[in-house]
Design a protein around this nucleic acid. Structure first.
Lengths: 222, 222, 222, 222
DNA sequence: AATGAATGAGAATTCATTCAT
DNA sequence: TATGAATGAATTCTCATTCAT
C-alpha cells in the first residue's frame, strides 16, 4: 500500500486505512453470522466507526461483500500457480510441493473464509461465484492440468484424463476442509492437513491396491 | 368465504398430504432462492394453500427447513450403507458398486439439494448440519472405514490410514459436484459423473504413477 | 364501487374500504405537512391501521400520491365541462354558469387541495402534473376555447385570441385562490369567491362584448 | 493536501463574495430539484467550496433558503411600484406600462424562480410566504389599488371594486406563467408573454372603460 | 381446516450538521 | 477560513407471524 517514501498522511483522519479495516471487520462477521444476519451497524461498530461512515467507503452492504471477495482474489490469482508452472523435477514432487503450499493457505482462517462465504451466499449473489471462478479456479486448474499432461507425456504418469484427474488430486483436501467447516467433523488433534495430504498423495500416486506393486507399500503415516 | 348456505365441496381435503406438499414446495424454492429469500407466502402459493394455513402444519419457517432435512435424511440413513456392510468379493468391487449407487443419487436434484441447502444455511442453523452429520455422515463413514480396514487386513489394500483414505475416496466426487453446483463449472456434456467415477477409481486403486506398475491397462476412459 | 345488489362483504375485514380511507388520510396529511414531511406511519395511524397494512394497498408512498391525484382527476374529467359544451343561450350566460360551478368546487377544500398538492410536489414528481394536465386541463380548456370561438362567430364577442382569452377568463379566479392558499392573503370575510366572480365577469364581459363599441379593431395580436 | 512545505497560494480569497455565490448555486439547484432534494454538499460543490465551509456562511440549509428569498425580495420591493405611483397620463397607459415591466421581469428565470420556490416550499416554511407577502405583495398591491381608485375617481374607469379588480388585472398573467411552470403548458413559440399581455389588456380595458357604455350600472357587487 | 387482513419489529440507507485538523 | 471524515437521527419498506372470521 505504501510506495517507498513512508510518511503517509496522518491528517485526513485515516481514510486510507478505513476500507481495509472495514473489510476485515465485515469478513469476521460474515464468517461468524453470515451475510444476511450481519447488520451494517455491526460492521461499523467492529471497525470502530459509525454506521453512516461505512457508506463513505462502500455504497452498499453488498458492495462490501463484493470488495471482500475481490480483495482476496487478486493476490491468489497473481502468484498462486506460478510455482507449479515453473516446476523442475518430477510431477510427483511438483504436486507434493504445491500441496504443501495449498495446505498452508487453507489453514489460514481468513483465506479459507472466502470460498466458504461464497458457498454460503452464492444463491443470493451468483456474481461472486463467477468472479471467484474466473480469477482463481480458472487460473489454478489449467496449471494443474498442464502439469498432469506433461507427466503423462514424459511417461511419469499413466494415461488418465487430466481434467478429471485434477478432481482426484484436489478433491480429498477440499472435502476434508469442507467436512470440518460445514459439518464440524474435525479429527482429534485438529485439521491435521499435513497428515491428510501425506496419506492422500501416497494413495494418489501409488494406488490403494497392494498386490500389483512389487515394491514398498510403506504407507500413509508421515 | 361462504356464510350461511354452507356445504362447500372444497375439493381439497387430503390434509394428510399437505405437509409433504409443503415440503416439496419449500425445497424447490429454497434451492432456487435460498432460505432467507423465500417468503412463507411463496411456499404457500406453490403448495396451493394460503399463507395462514402453512402455520397449521409447521410452527415456523425454520421448522419447515428442519423438517425438510429430517425427511431427506431418514431414508438415506436407513438403507444407505447396508450394501457396503454386506459386501462380498473384493473391496475394489464393493467400492465401485457403492460409487455407482452414490453417483446415481447425486444426480437426483432433490437429493443433492439437501446437503447444498445445509451448506448455504449452516451459518444460520448449525443444528441442521449436526443433524445431517449424525444421521448421514456418521453412519456412512464408519461403513467405508470398516471396508478399508477389512481390505487392509486381508492384504488387498496397502496400509493406509482408513479414516483419511475415506477422503481420498469420496473427495473427488464431492468436489466435482461442488464445482458444478457452486461455481457453475460443468464439463461439456453435463456432469458425467460416471466418467469421473471411472477415472477416479482407476487412479484411486492403481495410482497415478506409471513406472512401478508392471501392468498398465491404460486407464481412464470408461 | 358497488354494483347494484348491495350487501357487500363484511368479512374480509374491510379491505374494500381501506384504499379510500387511506387516500383520505393521506390527503389530509399531505395538505397539512406536504408529501415529504408526512410519514407513511402517520397516514396509517390516521387511517386507523398499522404501518405495514398500508403496503397491502399501495406499493409505495409515491403510489399513494399518484392514486390520490388519479382519484381526484377522474370525476372532474368526466362531467366537468359537459355543461359548457351543451350550453344554450348566450356565451355570457354559459360562462357565468360555469363560474358558479367552478367557484363552488374551488371552495371544497379536498378538491382544491389536489392542484395545490401538485404545485408543491411537481418538482419531485413531474408525472403528477402531466396527469393533471392531460386529464383535467386539456379537457376543460378546449371546451372554453370552443365557447369563445362560437361567441366570436355569432358576433356576441369581439375577435380576441380564444386561447389567450381563456387566461383572461380563468386567471383572476386562479390568482385569487392562489393568493389565499399560498400567501395567506384572504379578504376580510373569507374568500368570497362569488363576489370576486361577479366583479370579474362584469369587467370581463363589458370588455369582451362587441356591441357598445363603435369600432372593432379585432384586438389581440401584438 | 500539503504537509510540510506550506505556503499554499489558494487562489480563492474573496470570502466576501462567497455568500452570494452560495445563494446563486443554491437557487439553481432548488429550482431544478426542489429544496428537499438538494443536498448541502451539492450546493457547496456548485459554489466550488467544501461542504463544511457552507456552514461558515449559513447556519443551516433552511437559512440559505430564507436568505435567498430575502435577497430577491429587497430590490423588488424597493423600486418596483414607484413608477405606478408617479404615473402621469391615463390609468390605461400606466397599467400598460407596468405590465411591460412586469412581463420583462417574469421572463427572467432567476426572478420568477423565487415565488415558484415559495409555492413549492410554503408548506414546510410558511414564514417564507409571509416574508414575500409583506415585502412584495403588500407593497405592489396597494399601488395598483390606488391607481384604480384614481381612475374611477377621474371617470376614466367604471366603478368596480378596486381590490378585486387587481385580480382581474394581474390574474391572467399569473395564470399564464403558472400553467407554463407547473403544468408545462407553453404555447407554441414560447411563453409569448407580450402577446398575452396585449390580448389581455385589450379585453381588460374595453371592459373597464366607462365611455363606450351608455349606461353605467356600477357593477360588481352581487 | 382455511383464509388473508393486519401487525410491528427490524434493517438499509441518506444527509444535515459537527469538528479535528 | 477551509476541509472532509465522521456522526446518528430519521424513514421507507419487508415479511414472519397472528387472529378474526
Amino acid at each position: 500500500m505504501n510506495t517507498t517514501a513512508t510518511h503517509q498522511p496522518k491528517f485526513r483522519r485515516r481514510a486510507a486505512a478505513r476500507p481495509d479495516e472495514l473489510l476485515n471487520a465485515a469478513l469476521d462477521l460474515f464468517i461468524e453470522n453470515g451475510f444476511a444476519a450481519t447488520r451494517v451497524e455491526d460492521i461499523a461498530k467492529r471497525a470502530g466507526i459509525s454506521k453512516g461512515a461505512v457508506y463513505l467507503y462502500f455504497s452498499s452492504k453488498e458492495a462490501i461483500l463484493e470488495a471482500l471477495v475481490r480483495r482476496a482474489v487478486v493476490p491468489v490469482a497473481e502468484g498462486a500457480m506460478a510455482m507449479v508452472e515453473t516446476y523442475t523435477g518430477s510431477v510427483r514432487e511438483a504436486i507434493t510441493m504445491a500441496f504443501s503450499v495449498l495446505a498452508m493457505r487453507l489453514s489460514e482462517p481468513r483465506l479459507i473464509a472466502i470460498p466458504k462465504l461464497i458457498m454460503h451466499e452464492v444463491t443470493q449473489f451468483p456474481e461472486l461465484a463467477q468472479m471467484y471462478r474466473e480469477e482463481v479456479i480458472e487460473r489454478a486448474k489449467p496449471a494443474l492440468v498442464a502439469l498432469i499432461e506433461k507427466g503423462i507425456a514424459s511417461g511419469e504418469l499413466r494415461a488418465v484424463d487430466p481434467e478429471l484427474a485434477v478432481r482426484s488430486i484436489v478433491g480429498p483436501v477440499a472435502l476434508h476442509v469442507l467436512m470440518a467447516e460445514v459439518f464440524g467433523i474435525v479429527p482429534e488433534g485438529g485439521l491435521q492437513l499435513d497428515k491428510l495430504v501425506a496419506n492422500h498423495l501416497d494413495i494418489l500416486f501409488d494406488g490403494l491396491c497392494a498386490e500389483p506393486r512389487g515394491v514398498d507399500e510403506g504407507g500413509a503415516d508421515g
